[in-house]
């Protein structure tokens, strides 16, 4: 790691550990302010209802997205969230537009700028929306606009996909065919698409390794 990335790692760790404390302090503040500590058994029961799934997804996401987002992008992206729907596509799109590799220092810089910008814009839009909520809630809730909100990911990945697939169509073939077949056979897996990202990666890597060894790519 060069000096810039080393320092980014150091500052990133300080920010993310501070963020962890800030996030935990929210329920602590609620409990102290209202003298309302949660009953332990329902708390554990409630946690048990979501933790196995979401802790697994958390581990998978960190391992999967860290190489794509870079050091600064990872420390920032995992605090601000919405990695799949905003941060990773924003980083990929920016690196693609500038023609920089994700594992180069330029890629690190561009990915961080994209993720920081999208975090700021998202935070401002949510804050503005909260301030104007009574005005905009009926618009956001309107049935006319629901198809748009339900299709954000296809609209996003259609455009992004065409760029990456056209550049690496041979490498894209195996994971794409597998995923299409999988979701046709087992549509119920759609809710667990985040967990299936590493499966797609493993298939792409295995197919890529074979094609590379055979000199096809």
């Amino acid at each position: 790691m060069n000096d810039y990335i080393k320092k980014t790692d150091k500052y990133g760790k300080i920010w993310i550990w501070t963020a962890a404390i800030v996030i935990v302090m929210v329920p602590v503040a609620i409990c102290i302010a209202y003298n309302a500590w949660p009953p332990i058994i329902p708390l554990l029961k409630g946690l048990f209802g979501v933790a196995p799934m979401f802790w697994t997804v958390g581990v998978i996401e960190v391992i999967t997205y860290t190489p794509m987002l870079g050091v600064g992008g990872t420390y920032l992206g995992f605090v601000t969230g919405n990695i799949t729907s905003i941060k990773a596509p924003a980083a990929l799109n920016a690196m693609q537009n500038l023609g920089v590799d994700a594992d180069s220092e330029e890629g690190e810089v561009v990915s961080t700028i994209a993720i920081a910008t999208s975090s700021i814009v998202t935070t401002i839009i949510i804050a503005t929306g909260v301030a104007l909520l009574t005005l905009i809630a009926p618009i956001l809730d309107s049935p006319t606009l629901q198809p748009a909100f339900e299709n954000i990911l296809p609209a996003l990945f259609g455009g992004l996909g065409v760029v990456y697939i056209s550049k690496n169509w041979k490498l894209a073939l195996a994971p794409l065919v597998f995923m299409v077949a999988l979701f046709l056979i087992a549509p119920g897996l759609a809710d667990a698409v985040g967990v299936l990202v590493p499966v797609g990666i493993i298939i792409a890597l295995a197919a890529g390794r074979i094609m590379y060894k055979k000199g096809w790519i």
Binding site: T64, P67, M68, T84, A88, L92, D101, A102, D103, L153, P154, F157, G158, L160, G161, Y164, I165, K167, N168, L171, A172, P175, L176, F178, M179, V180, L182, F183, L184, P187, L189, A190, V193, L196, V197, P198, V199, G200, I201, I202, I203, A204, L205, G208, R209, Y212, I217
Partner: peptide, 26 residues
């Protein structure tokens, strides 16, 4: 191979989100 490895990460992710649109076609 390092470059192919990196591209595989991106394409693995993109494939999952492209494939999922077929979930309801039946």
């Amino acid at each position: 191979w390092g470059d192919i490895f990196m591209s595989s990460l991106f394409l693995g992710m993109i494939s999952a989100f492209l494939g999922v649109v077929f979930a309801d076609v039946r």
